[in-house]
Amino acid sequence: MLTIKNLTASYGKDSVLENLNLDIEEGMIHGLAGINGSGKTTLFHTIYGFIKPDAGTIQLNEQPLSRKKIAFLETQNYFYSNIKGKEYLDLFPDSTSTFSVKMWQELFKFPLNDLIENYSTGMKKKLALTGILKLDKPILLLDEPFNGIDMEAVRIIEKLLLRLKEKGKTIIVTSHILETLTAICDQIHILENKNITRIYRKNEFEGIEHDIFGEMDEKLKKWMND
């Protein structure tokens, strides 16, 4: 169990997360939803140890969580300039004997012998994802993995995440598209007002859209009628 207790994190004087509590069950896919600026990326950065929390603890099975156990896919992927796709993947050690670059290339259709700066946004995302999957870490933090990706690749990533779950990986994923989360997640955590305010289990997903957008839909309806 990954346990986050009373976590407070801030950028200078601006606190982004306040006394956040979250229990992440292992071997499941957890969705993290929230509006822009709600603190999803900050939470990932704090779990990854990129931001030192002002207060609180992050533990895996009652031991402090080590970065060694985590692979992190950032929202915006940055690559060193003048590097080819293959050279980028070669930097990542082969931690799993079953990993095949050729298979991934066929799946995602990225031109590995081209310079990465010539890749589209979606291609870059797929390349970055392939890189971190090569690391074979038990916990995956995926910040907006579906951004800029074509429909075919979205389906491949969905299937892939489900397969990784079967293999016992713990996956935390954020997305702006609620449907992509409901399709693959076992739990969806709503991050608002600097904290996790609601948790939905798979059998509760039907009402999630109404819960999140209900109030906003009413307002919109009223404004449009006016």
Partner: peptide
Amino acid sequence: GGYTFSFIPKDNFEWIS
């Protein structure tokens, strides 16, 4: 970028680039 530099180790991305 159609060529490779065999004398540079693959970890030395600064030199490759």
